[in-house]
Each structure stands twice: as structure tokens, then as C-alpha cells.
Amino acid sequence: MIQELKDNYKDVFEEGLINEINQVATFKEIPENFKIIEIGDYIKSMPLLLSGVIKIFREDTNGDELLLYFLENGDTCAMTLSCCIGQSRSEIRAVTETQVKLLMIPVQKMEEWMAKYTSWRAFVLNSYHTRLNEVMETVDSIAFLKMDERLLKYLKDKARVTHINSIHNTHQEIAYELHTSRVVVSRLLKKLENMGKIELNRNHIRLVEL
């Protein structure tokens, strides 16, 4: 665990903090498509992602989901941080996009390190800033982009975080994450293929250009 921790965070945290994380964190290896955090949960620890990708969703009053952003290795979730520090219930759902390895940091250590380590405080504040920008980008895409543009952005974002230019989600799964219908997604995927942006195959969608 210590080597993976150093590989991801040696340029972010000082050595003393890395050693403390190694002592108190709980290591977890979680399979693909596993729900890590549910809406309404009390969160007792904060995840530090070592490898893999996690999807963060928000739910509306009808129970429909909207994908807010992806977390990659070296990331944490600002909304999780907020819930931990404020001891409030989670307002997001976190689901693994791929198999992930992560460290769970106890909430009491998060608060202690804010005062003790400059690098931890900077990491937390930067995480808030990054996640806020990503949420604003999601809001902007809903407000200002046409659905075909949102779909292409979604495919490119997924390819970027997984480092694979082939998307293996079904049309229904894509529709669910974009808060639209399968029929709309299928029609727009065909449109993007005709434009030369993607290739539709039996079991995957290949991006022609990233």
C-alpha cells in the first residue's frame, strides 16, 4: 500500500503525512459497478483514489440520476469531504466505473491534518475548487449544449478518465447517466457516426478522435 500511496501522492503530500496516512487508512479494492456511497448515508471516512475511476451522481426528486463528474487516481470527492466535516448525510451517490483501489481516511484525521499539514489543507481546498469547476461544467453543458454535443462530451470524458477510446456501456446505460431516453441516445449516436466522430460496433462505441 505504501508504494502505491507514494506513487500517487509523493508530489502532493510531505513524507510525514504519507506515513500517517499509511498508518491510519483502510485499504480497499472494489470491483467495477459497485456502489461505494449512497444518498442519505452518514460518511465516516474520506476516499483517496489510488487507481481506477469512480462516477459521482446526483438524484432528483423523481429518483432519476445525473452524472456530475468522474474521479481518477490521485483524486478525492469534495462532496464527501463536506459531509465528513459537517457530519451531514450524503447528497451524492458514488459508483465505481472500473475496478478501483482506494484508501479510506477517518474523519477525525481529516480535521487534525487541516491544522497540522499545509499540503493536506492545500489538497482539500484544491479538491473543492476542482470539483466545483466540474459541477459548473456539467451545469453549463445541460444549459448551453445541444444533446448531441453533451453526448460527445460525455464519451470523450469517459475515454479520457479510463484511457481507452472504446466505450462499452449500452445505449440505455448512457441514457441513464445523461438523464435522457435510450431512443434519443441511439439516434444521436447514429448521427455522430454519420459525422465521422464515432464508430458504432456490436458491443462498444469507438471514438474516432479524442
Rank of each mutant, 00 (worst) to 15 (best):
E20R: 13
F70E: 03
R206S: 12
L210Q: 06
N19R: 13
M1V: 06
G40K: 05
F70C: 01
E199I: 03
K153C: 03
A25P: 00
I167A: 09
G16F: 06
Y128M: 08
K153E: 06
E111V: 11
T26Y: 10
C83T: 15
T130M: 04
P47T: 04
H171S: 05
E29D: 07
L66D: 08
W120T: 05
A122R: 15
R93H: 06
L5C: 01
R131V: 06
M104G: 02
N126S: 13
Y117A: 09
F13C: 07
K35S: 11
I30T: 15
K6C: 04
H171P: 01
F34V: 01
T180G: 05
E134V: 00
T96L: 08
L102E: 10
L66C: 01
C83Y: 13
T26H: 11
M46A: 13
Q108P: 05
E32G: 05
I43P: 02
V185E: 03
Q23G: 04
L67R: 01
E137G: 12
A122S: 14
W113G: 10
M1S: 14
K116Y: 00
Q108S: 12
R131D: 14
I56H: 12
E20S: 09
G196R: 04
H204K: 11
M114H: 14
K109V: 01
Y154R: 07
F27S: 09
S141I: 01
R89V: 02
K109D: 11
L192K: 07
Q87P: 04
A159W: 07
T61N: 12
I105S: 13
T138E: 10
I174N: 08
E4W: 04
L49D: 09
L152A: 08
A78N: 07
L189V: 02
L68M: 13
T138C: 10
S186D: 03
G86W: 02
Q87N: 15
Y9R: 02
